[in-house]
Amino acid sequence: MDIKVLGPGCKKCGTLAEAAKKAVEELAIDANVEKIDDMVKILSYGVMSTPALVINEKVVVSGKVPSVSEIKELIEKA
């Protein structure tokens, strides 16, 4: 599973990245969590507000920081 956190490096972006890592750890799944701060790459996903969470190349959250439990649900649905 491929998980990406899109954001320019703001506090919320860091918080989302940590929450995503914690969700992966709690689910005990094999997933790669990658932080992307390149604005060209972020815009290529069609994201206009950050932070954003991308699971398997699909934007699932944009403009907010979901809780760890919400992220776990999103991962399980993916």
Rank of each mutant, 00 (worst) to 15 (best):
V61C: 10
I29S: 00
E26W: 00
V33R: 06
A78Y: 03
E73V: 02
A31M: 09
E76R: 15
E18T: 03
E70N: 02
P66R: 13
G46Q: 08
N32G: 01
G63K: 14
D38V: 12
V61H: 06
T15P: 00
V65E: 08
E26Q: 15
D30Y: 01
A78S: 15
A52H: 11
A31G: 11
E26R: 14
V54R: 09
I29K: 05
I36E: 12
K11N: 02
C13R: 06
K77A: 14
K12A: 06
V59M: 11
S44W: 01
A23G: 11
L43K: 03
T15C: 00
V60K: 14
V60P: 06
D30F: 00
M39D: 05
G14I: 02
A19K: 11
E34A: 04
G14T: 00
S44I: 04
L16V: 09
A52M: 10
V61G: 08
T50S: 05
E25W: 02
G63A: 11
S67H: 05
I55S: 10
V47K: 14
T50K: 01
V33S: 11
V61Q: 07
K64V: 12
L16H: 06
A20P: 05
A23F: 04
A19M: 07
V54E: 08
K72H: 02
S67N: 06
E70H: 05
D30S: 14
L27C: 01
A52L: 13
A23M: 13
